[in-house]
Write a protein that binds this DNA or RNA. Sequence first.
DNA 1: TAGTGGTCTAGACCACTAT
DNA 2: TAGTGGTCTAGACCACTAG
Lengths: 229, 229
Amino acid sequence: MSRSLKHVAIREYVRSLVEGSAPGTAAPSERDLVDRFGVARMTVRQALDALVSEGVLERFPGRGTFVAAPRRTASGVTGFSEEMARRGIVADSRTLAADQLPAGENLARALQVPAGIPVVHWRRLRTADGRPVCLTDAYLDRTRVPGLLESLPTSLYDDLAARGLRPSWAEDMLAAATATPEEAALLEVPSGAAVLRHHRRALAGDAVVEVSRTVYRGDAYTLNVQLCS
Amino acid sequence: MSRSLKHVAIREYVRSLVEGSAPGTAAPSERDLVDRFGVARMTVRQALDALVSEGVLERFPGRGTFVAAPRRTASGVTGFSEEMARRGIVADSRTLAADQLPAGENLARALQVPAGIPVVHWRRLRTADGRPVCLTDAYLDRTRVPGLLESLPTSLYDDLAARGLRPSWAEDMLAAATATPEEAALLEVPSGAAVLRHHRRALAGDAVVEVSRTVYRGDAYTLNVQLCS
DNA sequence: TAGTGGTCTAGACCACTAT
DNA sequence: TAGTGGTCTAGACCACTAG
């Protein structure tokens, strides 16, 4: 080890001690670690601070340091396939279009590409347990997903992940509306039925990787979101 | 000041220095702060550590400490008043009911209270720029919000914050549906118009502080969400 | 009362950056 | 070369908790 970084060594030692332990299990006290590693207490505290801010440990003044209960996590950025899998539902989809279209002004701005250049367009009718649930139009910067249209993946988000473009950030808009006749026909609902419109702009780092517009059947889909602040 | 907490004083001093500064602006160096406050360097570092982990400052070894570019933040847990204010819209509301009702089974479970005990119920018709936008039924554990019904606040979330119960976590469900005749009348839309149903369970720490059901006019409201993972 | 974490001191050496 | 943050030491006193 070229650079020792004692606080890292201590941190990883404690992490390995603690991983798999039940919440509430006592971690070594700061002074124990001082003795064991022969370091100053500030160094131990630096190590434990990291684990506390990671949510691995909790400190209670006067009592000690303990394994923290797993944190609640906000819902991440997931695609339809994942979301359905999480609910234990068999998701499937039928591709209605997979082509390239010149980007209109709004789309171009959202995708951060020049207006008028062709972008990848993929339209799918998605089903859950065999029943139509939603209609998705996904738009992507063709330079980021070469070959996508030639071999369409099962899950767009898995494919993006494989390209190192897994969205880590999404801006979503949700609104209730009524189905257009075309949407109604595809979703097999009466024209004018209530639908949930969902627009998404998904980013990986600073790059916009997907802009999508989805229409969900109001009677067949509920969106769940966990928020934190 | 009964307890000085030097690192807090230093942290807030730096925060006030820095707030409003452009990203990239240099913050005082650690040794400057040592001189200014007459403290040890570890104390200064403790103060700056907090601002760094808050995302206010960034450190660059060998260069210095600088104001960080604003982080992308996921949308927090906000109430309607805040949300409208953020959009620059004048929000108002009319109380339709403010009473206590025995909790049904589902509501009791969601609120973590025994079934059948009375819970606070507050129904409001909310308007934006004078037009009806949504109808909200909020349910709260009466023991957590004594006096709420006697003097109804303008903003529920502000009131909760004042009680130390600001929600920091919410589980939301969203679905499109059609308005019931009663909802339609209050929202001033035709019966059967598309509406967005929004159920929320808001928590502060481990305590459920609010369970609410909101019906938004589909033509008057779009929900925006930012997600990260 | 013994042990814990919270806070703080007054130094030190290092690698790195900018000039 | 001067200044910066990164790491580390060897103590100290405090308030709090548990037995």
